[in-house]
Design a protein around this nucleic acid. Structure first.
Lengths: 125, 125
DNA sequence: TGCGGTACGAACAAACTTGTAAGTAATGGC
DNA sequence: GCCATTACTTACAAGTTTGTTCGTACCGCA
């Protein structure tokens, strides 16, 4: 995102990390917002402004940065229409769509383990 | 990890995020090392020193921090034996083990999309 | 000429994560 | 007493991510 130092230990470690298929995959969707963006775009292409409305507490800047990074990573396709006012549409690429079932499983994990206490209370009084 | 400010937008946004099952799950395993640690521990309990050897480029401090956080999050169980020199064993809890199949899929994703160019070259010349 | 609408960009600041280096505790062996 | 071992802990520093604010471009409309 913001111009990395290329020789820091931090970056060197990252290089080790993305040698592993698993962590490579996770690295593609790290950050706070990418996963949410992919989730939203799963239902089809959306304009920048539409995405913005979906995440009221995410700033425009963050949305822009994430979308740019995702474009670079081949997760989203960006289509600009030469109109005034501008219109830009975002849609998922095949590789991003392939996250679908994984996200579903992660979501199920979250649903199951989020508040295990609550479940116990219901079951046991 | 290191004493968060409780009223920053950063933290407030996080609270929004963990209301979603999907991002709650991802939040549990974020950071650079947790996923790798879970992967290693999937094959059974390990001592601190054994884990350390598995990740030569991860510092002791990072390993400690991650393990502590994971313990707090209920992902690992920590067993201390009152011996000298000390012996501490780590093992995954049920909720961490439940990540297994998900990690497998993520890994497959990584294997498939990591170097699509290479695959094309082989297939198409 | 000034304003509204869209999708950004840039400068700056705050917060968080990660890495470096050194030190702790307790006991056994020399 | 001094060193080795194991599993940490602390102080410090560097690096990265996230958030705030302001400003751009273009056209149509009043």
């Amino acid at each position: 995102m913001a111009a990395r130092k290329k020789n820091s230990t931090y970056t060197r470690n990252e290089e080790h990390i993305i040698e592993c298929d698993l962590t490579y995959a996770v690295n593609k969707i790290n950050g706070r917002w990418k996963i949410l963006i992919i989730s939203k775009l799963e239902s089809g292409k959306m304009r920048f402004g539409e995405l913005k409305k979906e995440f009221p507490y995410m700033t425009e800047r963050m949305l822009t940065l994430q979308l740019r990074a995702m474009e670079q990573d081949g997760l989203v396709k960006r289509t600009v229409y030469a109109e005034i006012p501008p219109r830009v549409e975002y849609e998922l690429t095949e590789m991003a769509l392939a996250f679908g079932p994984i996200f579903k499983q992660l979501s199920e994990w979250g649903g199951k383990y989020r508040l295990p206490v609550k479940a116990t209370v219901e079951g046991e009084g």
